[in-house]
C-alpha cells in the first residue's frame, strides 16, 4: 500500500513532537490506544486565556497514526477547547487521504484531542472548586 504524499510529509517531518509537563495546570494530556493494538498516542495541549497556544505529541504507531497526530497538533493550535472538540476524524481522513484500513488512526487522533481537552477541563474544574473552597 502506498502512502499519500501528505502522510509521508508528516511522517518524515513530524510537527510538534515532544512533551509538556503533565502537572502544569495549563496543560491537558490525552493518552489513547494500547501497545497490544499497535498504536498509542499522547497528545498535549497548552492553553492561555482559553485558547490553545501550543500542542505536542508522541505516537507509537504506523506512519498514518504518526501523521494523524502530527496533523491534529497543527489543527488545534489557535482554537478554543470547544472548537478543538469539533475536529472530526473524517476531516483527518480527507486531509491525509487515508485508506479504509487506516481510518482507525484518525479516530485515535480525534479521541486523543478529546482526552486532552477533557483532562484540561477536569483540571480547570478542580482548581475552580479549590478556589471556591478557599473563599
Amino acid at each position: 500500500m502506498a502512502y499519500s504524499d501528505k502522510v509521508v510529509d508528516h511522517f518524515n517531518k513530524p510537527r510538534n513532537v515532544g512533551s509538556f509537563d503533565k502537572t502544569d495546570p495549563d496543560v491537558g494530556t490525552g493518552i489513547v490506544g494500547a501497545p497490544e493494538c499497535g498504536d498509542v498516542m499522547k497528545l498535549q495541549l497548552k492553553v492561555k486565556d482559553g485558547v490553545i497556544e501550543d500542542a505536542k505529541f508522541k505516537t507509537f504507531g504506523c506512519g498514518s497514526a504518526i501523521a494523524s497526530s502530527s496533523l491534529a497538533t497543527e489543527w488545534v493550535k489557535g482554537k478554543t477547547l470547544d472548537q478543538a472538540l469539533e475536529i472530526k476524524n473524517t476531516q483527518i481522513v480527507e486531509e491525509l487521504s487515508l485508506p479504509p484500513v487506516k481510518i482507525h488512526c484518525s479516530v485515535l487522533a480525534e479521541d486523543a484531542i478529546k482526552a486532552a481537552v477533557n483532562d484540561l477541563k477536569k483540571k480547570q474544574a478542580a482548581s475552580q472548586t479549590a478556589e471556591t473552597a478557599k473563599s
Partner: peptide, 16 residues
C-alpha cells in the same frame, strides 16, 4: 523512539 510515548514512559520507569 524519540517520538514514542512508550519509550518515554519506559525511561521514566513506568511499567507499561
Amino acid at each position: 523512539r524519540e517520538m514514542s510515548p512508550l519509550y518515554e514512559m519506559a525511561k521514566e520507569g513506568i511499567d507499561l
